[in-house]
Amino acid sequence: MTTPALQAHGLGKSFRGVDAVVSLDLEVAEGEVVGFLGPNGAGKSTTLRMLLGLLRPTTGTASIRGHRAGSREARADVAYVAGDVALWPQLTGAETIELLTSLHGSYDAGYRDELVARFDLDPSRRVRSYSRGNRQKVALIAALATRAPVLLLDEPTSGLDPLMELVFRECVLEAGGRGQAVLLSSHLLAEVEHLCQRVAMIRQGRLMRVAGVEEMRALVDVEFEITGDVGDLSGVAGVEEVTSLVDGVRVRVHGSPGPLLAALATRPVSALRTREASLEEIFLSFYAPASTT
């Protein structure tokens, strides 16, 4: 059996009696890009910091490629980008990248230079003169240049402009293609939808679900717009809501659309359109009730 690139088992963390993360189980395989979603304060950063060994778990274990999180071996295998990057203001971008990559132990100097060009970073500027996005670029370049087997990214594009966000996406896809495992915490759901094979959703410190994006979609309602005089569909299994349109109906279906399609087979349908739920809608379906409480 292959050792997961990243593994959390029963991972929990309490701060002064308040549970920040509770019994979290998660695995990320080599070459896999996993999105880590949740509202603010859900426990995403706490989980990542336990995987880095920066926080000591109250319960459970975290490991990187079979090594205890925070151990020398684990540190050598992981690279990290924080959401709000704080660096030494007097160092230049080039000096900071050199420091961070050197501390990691190994890095690809050619790839580093390529990344500097792709992210359009001026490395001669001192960190104190960088915008938030440029500081983010420095951290991203340093992390990616290490070619670490595991990348832990905590809202890494929160300061990047759309062009740089595209560059970031390319780099993450390339990293996954090279076999690097990526755990990506992000609020940009389109980004997660584009990059990630699986998504882990956390709420109030508890992991709600880990599944592929397609599998997630099956969990939420799908809308069908049907043109034609199809009659009453409200009694069909799975149909939650029917809304009349000028030339047909809009039907919201929960679960499998099979019964609806079977019912439509015998009716005069001139057109049928479906719209899959976006990750944003999936996200809202998971978290909206909690946010209203």
């Binding site: 920066l54 961070l100 132990g105 951290a139």
Partner: peptide, 16 residues
């Protein structure tokens, strides 16, 4: 002081 400024998160994820 570096810890309070948040500068140690990235370096201590790599260094001992």
């Amino acid at each position: 002081a570096d810890g309070l400024a948040g500068r140690l998160d990235v370096v201590l994820s790599a260094a001992s």
